[in-house]
Design a binder for these strands. Structure first.
Lengths: 147, 147
DNA sequence: TCAAGATTGATGCACTTGCATAAATTTTCT
DNA sequence: AGAAAATTTATGCAAGTGCATCAATCTTGA
C-alpha cells in the first residue's frame, strides 16, 4: 500500500490539462472572431452581461464580479468599449464614487452581428469535440471551482 | 417536442464557465506564486518540460507544441528564461535553423524551489474544491478538446 | 540538382495587462 | 457626529502579447 500523496497526481494532471485545453480552445475561438473582423471575446461578454441586465445597465464592479476580471482590467476594457461607442458611461445615481455603464444600440447591434460567428466558433472548437453529457459534466465540476 | 438548436445552450454555458473558471483559478494560483517571490507559471512549465526531456533539452518548436503556445510567445519566454540563467540556448546540431534549449542547474533548482508553493496553490485553489473522481472526469473530458 | 515551398526562430511596433497607488466617496464604529 | 476603514474607479509605468514579417535553413519534387 502506498501512502497518499499530498496532492494526488491525477489532480495536478487535471489542473495542467485544464489550463492548456481552455487556453488553446480560447485562442482558436478568438482567431475565428478576428478573422471575421470582430473584436475580442471580452467585448462580447461585457455587452452580453449588459444586455441581460436591468435597464441594460451595470456598475463596473458588477461586471468585475460576473466576469471574474481584475478591477483595472475592467476599467480599461470599458474605456475601449466606450471609445468605440458600444457602451456609455453615466454617473451613478446611487453612488457618488461609481459609474453606471449602459449598452448603446450600436453595442446591441454588435452583439447580434457577432453571435453567429461566435456560436459557430464555439461549436467547431469546443462543442463538436464533446460527447453527449460532457457539457453538463463540465458545468457541474467547474461550478465547484467558481464557488 | 422542441427542435434541437444548432448549439445546445448547455454547451455554450459550459464553454463560458470553462473560460471563467480556468481563468480565475489560474489567476489565484499565479497570485500565490508571486506572493512567494516566484516567477510566473509559464516559467515553471517550460522548466518542467525540459527537465523531463531527453538530455534535459528541447527545441523551441517542441515546447511550442507541448505547451500549446504561440511561436513568438515561446521565443520571448525562452529569452527571459535565458536572461535569468535558468536555461541555455545552444545551436541545434541537427538543424541549422534551430536552437536547442537546455535547463541549467539553476533552472532545476528553481523547479525544486517552486514545487511546494505551486503544489500548495493548486491544492488550495483547485484540488480542494473538487469531489472524488472530478479530476479524472476533467482529464477525460478536456482530453477530447486537445485532440 | 536546384528552384519553389515549408519550417524554424527572432523582432519592431502597437496594444493589453499587471502593479502600485491615487482620489473620491461611502460605510462602520465609537 | 466624526474619525478610521473599506469600496469604487482611474492611471502612470513597466512588462507581456499579438501581428506581421524577416532571414536562415531544410524539404520536396520536377
Amino acid at each position: 500500500m502506498s501512502k497518499s500523496t499530498p496532492t494526488p497526481p491525477a489532480a495536478i494532471d487535471a489542473w495542467a490539462r485544464l489550463q492548456r485545453a481552455s487556453g488553446a480552445v480560447l485562442a482558436r475561438v478568438e482567431t475565428r472572431l478576428k478573422a471575421d473582423g470582430f473584436p475580442p471575446l471580452g467585448w462580447y461578454d461585457v455587452l452580453l452581461e449588459l444586455s441581460r441586465a436591468e435597464d441594460r445597465t451595470l456598475r463596473p464592479v458588477e461586471i468585475e464580479k460576473r466576469m471574474l476580471l481584475a478591477q483595472y482590467n475592467v476599467s480599461r476594457l470599458l474605456d475601449r468599449l466606450a471609445a468605440a461607442g458600444y457602451i456609455e458611461k453615466l454617473k451613478s445615481p446611487e453612488d457618488g464614487r461609481g459609474v453606471s455603464v449602459r449598452v448603446t444600440s450600436e453595442g446591441e447591434a454588435l452583439l447580434k452581428a457577432m453571435w453567429p460567428c461566435y456560436q459557430a466558433a464555439v461549436e467547431a472548437e469546443f462543442t463538436n469535440h464533446l460527447e453527449p453529457g460532457d457539457a453538463e459534466t463540465l458545468w457541474d465540476v467547474l461550478g465547484r471551482l467558481v464557488r
